[in-house]
Design a protein around this nucleic acid. Structure first.
Lengths: 245, 245
DNA sequence: CTTGACCTTGTCGTGGCGTCAAGGTTTCTA
DNA sequence: TAGAAACCTTGACGCCACGACAAGGTCAAG
């Protein structure tokens, strides 16, 4: 048989057969005078075994191992491992599908896919065009990906529903062009801190300061006066969280 | 933020972030004086979205598409396709696991994993060390991989169980060193053809001659006298099968 | 001043082949 | 008898999402 014939017989491509030669899985057969490979029935039988094993999901080097020790004992062992592997993959797949279903079930945030808990919180929040409010929500989305906790969201719920919070955001917006020593900074920071429900501090998982660069980048994201407010609010909050421990 | 910080924040590796830059999925941020990349919160938010999408199983170019059209419409569409794809993969996985279970359930042939139907037939066949019998079974295993039919196996069942067939194989063995004109060839071929149950011809799916090289290789697998017997048996069988159509 | 933890660019490797490229051989057909 | 179609040969690159390594430069702490 020529290579195309043996390949068609066992149901694979000639390229695959050549590949098996290349990696030493199948010995090179004799050649005809014109250089064509001349396959025997034995080669075809071997190829058929290779095909069945690869179709089960074995890698080519696993196939080589199985073919090497002719004993069926090793085959059973490898197949056992393979089944465990497939079971694991199946679980992962099912898990991803569950995540997907949860995403498709709820409303799709325009900030991308988020956890259903956060999506619910964002949906409950008062609608506003305030730029700082939008930024704040982006930060929530960011933390959501970094393992945001449903308890924090629950604790934030009353804050999100409070219509008064919109006014606070708007006062923050007004500081966009203000200098870093604007007199409105102090009072606004104090009011913001006071607005945060006490339960939030208990819910936030406190795992030590992560990286100094992150806080700096957060502040760099705001114009000077706003950054100063944010700095004060964060300082007050971390201080209060440190008290708790 | 430096690259390691933003990577840790969103839960990926710095290498992945650089990769996203390389393929244009994430724009290169500004550099500090020392050449380090300086990431903003916006970058982190983008990376978090990328991470969530890739974790769902999207490819990076699909992620790019989703991020490109900011509309949530396209996202739902892509996620729908993705779910269909995952469902397909899940079915394939389950199918492979079923095959595996069937293999592990029955006895493992020393010729490698075969369909349970063929395994059953081989188990029922009379035990023998005859080389031509072994070869014959290898051919069955080969055809099994090429979509062997359970009906053929059922039709062969009485032949396999017949103790007289062992004697036929042994007479074929004896022709190993004989010349191509040995007088035992004719009678043996006739008896072999007569031994094949009529039902086999109905069961064999006849799809025209596949490739001439295959038959030639089959004959080349035998010494001259045996090859002549095989040639006659096959000629008789194909002739009878052609009659049927 | 060293140590160690970062950062930079660039390149190779992964798995199982698919897909050209640039030829040579064989066989069928006009 | 020529030419086209269908084979075959070796060789090399592409895929996908990075991991691992090399060979440096940078920075803060002890």
């Amino acid at each position: 048989m020529r290579i195309g014939e043996v390949a068609a017989l066992v149901g694979i491509t000639s390229r695959a057969v050549r590949h098996y030669h290349h990696i030493g899985l199948l010995p090179e057969p004799a050649r005809r005078a014109n250089g064509y490979r001349a396959y025997t029935v034995r080669d075809a039988v071997l190829l058929a075994r290779i095909r069945r094993l690869t179709e089960l999901g074995l890698g080519l080097d696993e196939v080589r191992d199985v073919l090497a020790d002719d004993a069926g004992r090793d085959l059973a062992e490898v197949l056992g491992e393979l089944d465990a592997d497939l079971a694991r993959q199946e679980r992962e797949l099912a898990e991803r599908r569950r995540q997907l279903a949860r995403l498709l079930d709820g409303p799709l945030s325009d900030l991308g896919p988020v956890s259903p808990e956060l999506a619910e919180l964002l949906g409950a929040a008062a609608a506003t065009d305030s730029p700082t409010a939008v930024k704040d929500r982006e930060h929530l989305v960011l933390l959501d990906g970094a393992g945001g906790s449903a308890e924090v969201y629950a604790a934030l719920r009353p804050l999100a529903e409070d219509p008064a919070v919109v006014a606070l955001y708007e006062r923050l917006d007004e500081l966009a062009g203000a200098p870093a020593d604007d007199p409105r900074i102090g009072p606004l920071a104090a009011e913001l801190v006071a607005a945060v429900p006490a339960g939030v501090f208990d819910a936030i998982p406190y795992g030590g300061d992560p990286h100094p660069g992150i806080g700096a980048a957060l502040l760099a994201d705001y114009p000077p006066a706003q950054a100063e407010v944010v700095r004060r609010v964060m300082a007050a909050m971390t201080a209060r969280m440190r008290e708790r421990r």
